[in-house]
Write a protein that binds this DNA or RNA. Structure first.
Length: 647
RNA sequence: GCUGGUGUGGCUCAAUGGCAGAGCAGCUCAUUCGUAAUGAGCAGGUUGUCAGUUCGAUUCUGACCACCAGCUCCA
């Protein structure tokens, strides 16, 4: 007999019992729900025989680990179905991911949506067959021979990597299907009750563009059909918030074939929001000691030679002229502001008394992204960022870094994006010698400094290896969109290299010339991208203070237009953006339109209001607030704007 | 850049190897209306672009362009 510690108590069982059987003895509910278990803290299959006293914890689909295992097993079912229908398909890998799982196949012809339906039907059969999922092992030699014989070249590659570890190779088997896999897995295929194949796309083997492109089938799986339906509904909801659709529908931006990819046109509404954000950022930064600069959008290649962009970023630049012709001048649009803004510092000799020097600029940049990268307002070839460089003495680094972090958290907090953000400490990869400037000592120093600052500021971050800029480590603030995809919205970088390249010295108190540190940072990131996330976050219903149109006047009949215009003029004079709907339509029609346009306030004026000098106020999302004096409404509206309230 | 999908009035979508159609939006007229769609009429298209096949192409083929999903790359 062995003693097994369960959640609440100790129970005794025959040696050799499996966690599966224990779960069954506890209750049918648990038995049906459990996916995998932890034995003495280690995640194990439910069919692992227990031969000694131990502690067993059952994990269900509600546990992250349980969910992962469940979906990983679902990916095996997918692979099995594909092998049944397309025996020539070669298997690559099939892990669980955040919201589901995928499997990569090497097939002659990519799967069509009809193929996916067929595969899905075959998967249903496999689930119905309720095949036990059983673990077994082979020696590396056996495993390699086994896969070589089957022609599974990707599996051979994977096994070969494990071969020299001196460990047996772990396999799982369900029916006729055998899969190289470390596990663990659920006990049988019958438990995967609700799943859906979502899409099929290309993906490089092992994530490298040098390798063959495989076909990746994305899918998701749940234990209950209702949960699957809810997830599909969630995806639909995400589509409704998608900035790329909503932003075009609500006329924030558009794209034009003859202008080109990655060059969106900001329509009046989009341009207005960006202007509001820019003015706000510039004003706040001014109060925080930033000096506003305006530097050229292009320069001769000589500038980029000094900065290192010519060596490390040339493919990303728009170059005018022949870059290899040294006889004639060659210009390039700027992909970053740094080398330009440094010239402000270099304008004259600097004293330690001038540091920190905080330079800010609303800066337009040009990057020649690969054609497949562009996406709405998120990835574009021309964009404008709230740029800044802080030139400082080494002893000022922590304080100034802290100031930068606080500033962007302030901005992101007010616009309402901060709750969806996480932090990433982006470091260099010493093995990627092509990408980075500087010595290992310089990098270690810069990264150690940033690590200390982040620790002191108690920033909770993830580490991103090989995500650094070519001149230094970054703290990236990552925004997670409605589809769960993340992109950098704000970045703060420590640069201990470029000052020397540009000869940016200062005279210290001791009369010595010294090199400053430089912080590169944005405060609200790139305005196009930020606008996209605002549209998404608010589903197009931007907070009052940044709405392109804040108030729409709705006359009940044409005779009320004059009274409406009067109120609109009054609001305009106070800086509240108001317009009058002068169409000869019924109130319901105009109201519906204003509502669909997501205008924050709709003011209805009929005989009563025109006579009394009042307005009937309807607030987006709140409905009819009733009749009030124009002055009272103005008070509310100005308060909304002043407090930048989000509703 | 790579894999796949898509491309018909401003938007949503029909149709066809032989005169391209509807709803919404727009304009005009009538209606002057109280919190999410009043009625009638009018106008709007070289079917993404350019080639090819064909008596005839929006439909079939090819190239290019743009958009979408994903990979790779990045604010």
């Amino acid at each position: 007999m062995i003693k097994v510690k369960l959640r609440d108590d100790y129970r005794e069982f025959e040696a050799g019992i499996t966690p599966d059987e224990i779960a069954k003895s506890i209750g049918a509910g648990l038995y049906k729900a459990v996916c995998v278990c932890r034995v003495n803290g280690e995640v194990k299959d439910l069919r692992t025989p227990l031969n000694e006293n131990c502690e067993v914890e059952f994990l269900t689909f509600d546990d992250e680990e349980g969910k992962r295992v469940f979906r990983h097993s679902a990916s095996h079912i997918l692979a099995q179905a594909v092998k049944r229908l397309y025996p020539e398909a070669k298997l690559a890998i099939g892990p669980a991911i955040d919201n589901g799982f995928y499997y990569d196949f090497d097939v002659e012809k990519p799967f069509s949506s009809e193929d996916l339906l067929k595969i899905e039907a075959e998967m249903k059969k496999i689930v119905k067959e309720d095949l036990p999922i059983e673990h077994f092992e082979m020696t590396p030699e056996e495993a390699i021979a086994y896969y070589k014989e089957k022609g599974e070249i990707y599996k051979v590659e994977l096994v070969e990597e494990h071969a020299d570890k001196g460990e047996p190779i772990s396999f799982y088997k369900q029916g006729e299907f055998t899969e190289l896999c470390a596990g663990p897995h659920i006990p049988s295929t019958g438990r995967v009750k609700a799943f859906k194949l979502l899409s099929c796309t290309g993906a490089y083997w092992r994530g490298s563009e040098k390798n063959k492109m495989l076909q990746r089938v994305y899918a998701t799986a749940f234990t209950k059909a209702a949960d699957l339906e809810a997830y599909v509904e969630e995806l639909e909801e995400a589509k409704r918030r998608d900035h790329n659709k909503l932003g075009r529908e609500l006329e924030y931006f558009t794209t034009v074939d003859v202008i080109g990819q990655g060059l969106p046109v900001l329509l009046p509404k989009g341009a207005r929001v960006v202007q509001l954000l820019q003015r706000w950022v510039e004003d706040v930064e001014q109060k925080r000691g930033y000096l506003l600069t305006k530097t050229p959008l292009m320069a001769k290649r000589d500038l980029y030679r000094i900065s290192g962009h010519w060596d490390h970023y040339r493919d990303g630049m728009f170059i005018m002229g022949d870059p290899d012709d040294e006889e004639n001048e060659c210009f390039a649009m700027r992909p970053m502001t740094c080398p330009f803004q440094y010239q402000v510092y270099l304008n004259k000799p600097r004293s330690y008394r001038e540091l920190p020097m905080r330079l800010g600029e609303t800066s337009t940049l040009f990057r020649n992204e690969d054609s497949g990268e562009m996406h709405g307002l998120i990835r574009v070839r021309q964009f404008t960022i709230s740029e800044g460089h802080l030139v400082l003495r080494p002893d000022q680094l922590e304080e100034e870094f802290k100031g930068c972090l606080e500033l962007c958290k302030y901005f992101l907090g007010i616009v309402g994006l901060l709750p969806k953000c996480t932090f990433r400490f982006s470091q260099w990869d010493p093995n990627n010698t092509e990408k980075y400037e500087g010595t290992a000592e310089q990098w270690d120093k810069a990264q150690a400094a940033m690590a200390k600052i982040l620790a002191d500021l108690e920033v909770d971050y993830e580490i991103g290896i090989d995500e650094a800029a070519f001149y230094g480590p970054k703290l990236d603030i990552q925004y997670h969109n409605v589809y769960g995809k993340e992109d950098t919205i704000v970045t703060i970088q420590i640069d201990m290299l470029l000052a020397e390249k540009f000869g940016m010295y200062y005279t210290d108190a001791d009369g010595e010339k010294k090199l400053p540190y430089i912080i590169h940072r944005t405060s609200l990131g790139c305005y196009e991208r930020t606008l996209a996330y605002l549209i998404e976050t608010y589903a197009g219903a931007l907070p009052m203070w940044m709405s392109p149109t804040q108030v729409r006047m709705l006359p009940i009949a044409d005779r009320h237009q004059e009274a409406c215009q009067k109120v609109a003029d009054q609001l305009d004079a106070l800086g509240i953006r108001a317009e009058v709907d002068t169409r000869s339509e019924k109130l319901g029609y105009k109201l519906r339109d204003a509502q669909l346009q997501k205008i924050p306030y709709m003011l209805v004026v009929g005989d009563q209001e025109a006579a009394d000098g009042t307005v009937s106020v309807r607030k987006r999302g709140f409905g009819d607030l009733g009749v009030m004096n124009v002055d009272d409404f103005i008070k509310i509206a100005l308060e909304d704007v002043a407090t930048k309230a989000a509703w």
